[in-house]
C-alpha cells in the first residue's frame, strides 16, 4: 500500500479525505483495541488532517493519541451509564 501523502489527500474532496485517513489508521487501532477500533477511529477523525497524517508517519504519536481517545471514550461511557442509572 502506498503511503498516504498530503498531496494525495489534497486531490480528494474533504469527506473523502477523512475516509482515506480512516482506512489507514483503522488497522493500526484495530491491532491495539479490536473491540473499540471503530469508535476510536471515529474520534480521531475529528482531528485535523495534517495532524492525522503526522500520526500515520509517527506510530508513537498515533499510539499515544489512541490511548488518550480510549480514556475519553471510557469517561464518556461512564458518564452515560451514570446518567442512565440516575
Amino acid at each position: 500500500q502506498e503511503p498516504l501523502t498530503a498531496s494525495l489527500l489534497a486531490g480528494a474532496p474533504p469527506q473523502e479525505q477523512k475516509q482515506m485517513l480512516g482506512e489507514r489508521i483503522y488497522p493500526v487501532i484495530h491491532e491495539m483495541h479490536p473491540t473499540l477500533a471503530g469508535k476510536i477511529t471515529g474520534m480521531l477523525l475529528e482531528i485535523d488532517n495534517s495532524e492525522l497524517l503526522h500520526m500515520l508517519e509517527s506510530p508513537e504519536s498515533l499510539h499515544s493519541k489512541v490511548e488518550e481517545a480510549v480514556a475519553v471514550l471510557q469517561a464518556h461511557q461512564a458518564k452515560e451509564n451514570a446518567q442512565k442509572s440516575a
Partner: peptide, 26 residues
C-alpha cells in the same frame, strides 16, 4: 436530537463511506 450524545462517537467502518457526525443521531 434530544440533546443526548449517547451515540457519540460515530463509528468508522472500513469500506463504508464516512459521514462523520452525520453518522449518529439521524
Amino acid at each position: 436530537s434530544n440533546g443526548s450524545n449517547i451515540n457519540w462517537p460515530p463509528e468508522f467502518h472500513p469500506g463504508v463511506p464516512w459521514k462523520g457526525l452525520q453518522n449518529i443521531d439521524p
